[in-house]
Design a protein around this nucleic acid. Structure first.
Lengths: 148, 148
DNA sequence: AAGTATGTCATAGTGATGGTTACACACAAA
DNA sequence: TTTGTGTGTAACCATCACTATGACATACTT
């Protein structure tokens, strides 16, 4: 499957906003840092603001900002905001209903797949954008807020 | 960041083999049950046999069989055998190295993504094909081995 | 020898993804 | 109020992985 890079790029953008310390960053700035196009970033910000994670300021001096403290934005929130598809894809065409296995395999598989998904999501819920921002600051040897 | 349908279909095929109780099943039979093409199944069986989960018998009366007891085939083994891509995709184009965030975001993100992946895999390791086969038999109200 | 089944190649259609251009709209600052 | 700035969205496109399908050489059973 073509897996989306939205999660990683969205986390990148939010981390940049957390690091900037409240100063709005333009989609163009975020795009430069993530090495992508400004429209791609705006598409992500659209989803993120709809999820209540960011808000945008129009006009000169505007840009995107975090809508709540970085400590209160979990990676799971980011994941849910920008990822569309189920973690596990099932059969493209439904299996043979009449078959002994085909008629029941999906119901038999689902509980385990649900547990696996929940386990993954539980891990993503443990880390916040503030954690990532702190790690980035540590790795880059700078302090937050960073003035550009 | 979805999986392909390979994982679900491979689990389906292995479950059918477990249910059949040692009798070889042709790729055509498995394809019928999974509602797909025989070549698709053969592609999966190729990966599964390479991973040591199945073996195939050529010629009349031949087909695919489990290479080891269903109790010793974990869903994680199936997942690893047929899935190619990383669970989490990172930036399509590497982020700006010189940026404070872009230069360090990947290293900051990786540990959490690894933990999330490991948590998911740990769940998949808890369930075996024998478990799934037993669930299918229970749901379908039949007993293993099932004579077709 | 005849029939059967696998394994692999080549081809094609499909759908999600990300890149890009264009433009209407909203806001800030002068 | 006017000008410049930045967002939000639509449209289009190239790319890529995925699945489906047809063909066929090979190997094995009967």
């Amino acid at each position: 499957m073509p897996t989306s890079t939205r999660f990683a790029v969205a986390a990148h953008a939010l981390t940049a906003l957390a690091v900037s310390g409240g100063k709005p960053l333009r989609s163009e700035d975020l795009a430069f840092s993530a090495n992508t196009g400004a429209v791609v970033i705006r598409g992500l910000l659209s989803r993120l603001s709809e999820a209540g994670l960011t808000r945008s300021q129009l006009g000169a001096g505007g840009g995107a900002m975090l809508a709540r403290p970085a400590e209160e934005i979990r990676l799971l929130d980011v994941y849910n905001a920008v990822e569309d598809t189920e973690l596990f894809s099932l059969h493209r065409t439904p299996p043979c209903k009449g078959c002994a296995v085909g008629g029941n395999i999906l119901d038999a598989l689902q509980p385990t797949l649900d547990r696996a998904r929940q386990a993954m999501e539980a891990e993503l819920a443990k880390t916040t954008i503030a954690d990532i921002a702190a790690d980035v600051a540590k790795l880059g040897k700078f302090s937050i807020p960073l003035v550009w």
